[in-house]
């Protein structure tokens, strides 16, 4: 905690950079997990699931 505070949070510049950088990974994590939830909920109804029947 002490190290994180002194390296990232103490200066506004590094704080902003840290927020932007983690927003990138946060977005990726949210998007991937949301897609995964959608796919599990709709399993069997999606085109990629029924594609084999029509090809």
């Amino acid at each position: 905690m002490k190290v994180i505070y002194n390296t990232l949070f103490k200066r506004t510049s590094t704080y902003a950079v840290a927020i932007m950088a983690s927003a990138f990974f946060f977005e990726r994590a949210i998007d991937v997990s949301a897609n995964m939830i959608f796919d599990t909920v709709n399993k069997g109804k999606l085109w990629k699931d029924i594609k084999g029947k029509y090809e």
Binding site: M1, N6, F9, A23, F26
Partner: peptide, 24 residues
């Protein structure tokens, strides 16, 4: 002091990350 501030800034920063995501 640094640990306590780190906790506060972490919470604010987490909110800011969510804000950046929504704004984007």
């Amino acid at each position: 002091a640094e640990e306590r501030k780190a906790f506060s800034y972490l919470l604010v920063g987490a909110g800011a990350v969510g804000g950046v995501y929504a704004a984007k």
